[in-house]
Amino acid sequence: MSTSSLPGSASGSLPSPAVSRVRHGLAPWARIAGLALCALLTLGPVIWTVSTSLHTPAKSFDLPPKIIPTDPTVVAYRGVFDQIDVWLYALNSTLVTALIAVGQMITAGLAGYAFARLEFRFKKPLFALVLATMMVPLQVTIVPVFLELKAMGLTDTLLGLIIPAFPTAFGTFLMRQYFLGMPKDLGEAAMIDGAGPWRVFRSVYAPLAAPGLAIVGVLAFNYHWNEFFRPLILETSTENLTLPLGSGLPPGQTSAPARSPSSSPGVVLSMIPAVVVFVVGQRPLREGITSAGVNR
């Protein structure tokens, strides 16, 4: 792990500051202090949001900011629940995100398996097609996608958000790599035993795919829970808004100028599931993000 440690320091005793200044340029305590400061700056906006949401609106802008509220109150939260239908937006967000995550796990799992373990014609060009679409930015295709959905009658419906997100080029790629990493002998042994292609998939490989599917699911959840651009374009009715659109931003006022500090409780509420995923699924999330980059 520690690539810059010295051969002599493996004993476990800390090198003296003078020595390490020569070797690292910085003393270990200075390095750690610097990192701690950076971590604080990174988490600062989040801490500020949470603490502000617990202040009364009048005290939200006290400077220096009081990180720990002197008299914590949920007034601001009550205000948010009174003004906007948080439960409805949360339900919409949950529905959309969960269905997309499950949908992507299914489509990516199946297609990834086909590309990794089944033989068929046009396999290479089809796979190249899937890979190529990974490069296409969503914003470039959004106008025709909007028109397609309009023609299907799916604009301003939750389904219009969900269905186009089912196919996932990256997820397919990831699952293909995942299935390729499994020993080929397993499937061959089952085939010699007379198992058909479906049996081989169902009983041999599919049960081993859970960790890979977890990566696809966690990435999908993280991305679509926070998604803003597509819902902004597709959903016009208040009852179809998702949390990022509905919580921080009052309906119909999507890019409003100055707004009341009551939006911080909304932001906090929309953060909660993301934080849960961060804590529970940190490992698949990290692996997914890393491979998202490495495999481009």
Binding site: T42, P45, V46, N222, W225, N226, F228, L243, P244, L245, S247, G248, L249, G266, V267, S270, M271, A274, V275, V277, F278, L285, I289
Partner: peptide, 8 residues
């Protein structure tokens, strides 16, 4: 910060 909504 990566797991948070950019809009929020």
């Amino acid at each position: 910060p990566l797991v948070l909504s950019a809009a929020s």
